[in-house]
Nucleic acid binder design. Structure first.
Lengths: 132, 132
DNA sequence: TTGCATGCAAAAACTTTGCATCATG
DNA sequence: CATGATGCAAAGTTTTTGCATGCAA
């Protein structure tokens, strides 16, 4: 995909994409930390630049979970909806199919096409509901 | 509500809450700008601290729209779901009822309670779909 | 009068930019 | 070997913190 666009395949880019896959959901800083374990010299700047690039290529996607930095995750075929617990911060994933009734209705009523791979739903997870 | 918790009602807090209501969806900086038109001395620090407080009290809520600062909006009775266009940045609001099928299923299957007032759905609005 | 709230300044956290050097294709 | 990519340093943004002062109750 990189070469198609006249771009270069570098070790840094490979490592960063691998880290996103391994971590599931991670901030630029967490990704940087993971990459550094394999290649100590990689700069945080490169992480930011590469994440932006990978997002352009639709290889990763990001969402904002409550406060702080955005988190990046794999994108593409196996999209998923995020369930973010506002109490414990856990991130669960569900099949985007759960959104179908909503996306269809919004398509009909508002002519709005929801980007399902980008959805994060805030709330309270089962564990936290039991411990108020 | 403030007094119930032993907190104080100050002009700054009133103005900030008013600004959130007037603006609909606004970043801390936009809120600060609006508040300053009525009271020039109000500090951005106070805006941040007050928004956090008002969120605690469930009087406002925030969501993250793509990149940049979070946006704050009124919360409480008249909750709404946000439709954010990734192309033109417009923010539309819809009745949270559209989410009912999803929230019910997640409640059943995952024991996850969705905070409907906090939902933002990314996608492409009708206007932008016609102009690629 | 009490102590919560504010303003100010400074620090912290996060992200972007410019430029010389490196290394992919 | 041309030019896209990286590392470094520095600047830009956004948010948080510490502390003295101010003011609501």
């Amino acid at each position: 995909m990189l070469r198609e666009r006249g771009l270069r395949l570098t070790p840094q880019r490979q490592l960063i994409l691998e880290a996103v896959h391994e971590l599931g959901h991670a901030t630029p800083e967490q990704i940087h930390h993971t990459v550094r374990q394999r290649a100590a010299g990689v700069n945080i700047t490169t992480v930011y630049r590469t994440l932006e690039l990978l997002e352009d290529l639709r290889l990763v996607s990001h969402t904002h979970l409550s406060h702080g930095s955005p988190t990046y995750h794999r994108a593409g075929e196996d999209q998923h909806v995020h369930l973010v617990c506002r109490d414990c911060g856990s991130i669960d994933e569900v099949d985007p199919a759960v959104m179908l009734p909503v996306t269809e209705q919004l398509q009909r009523d508002r002519n709005f096409r929801v980007d399902v791979g980008h959805v994060s739903l805030f709330g309270v997870c089962g564990d936290c509901k039991e411990q108020p």
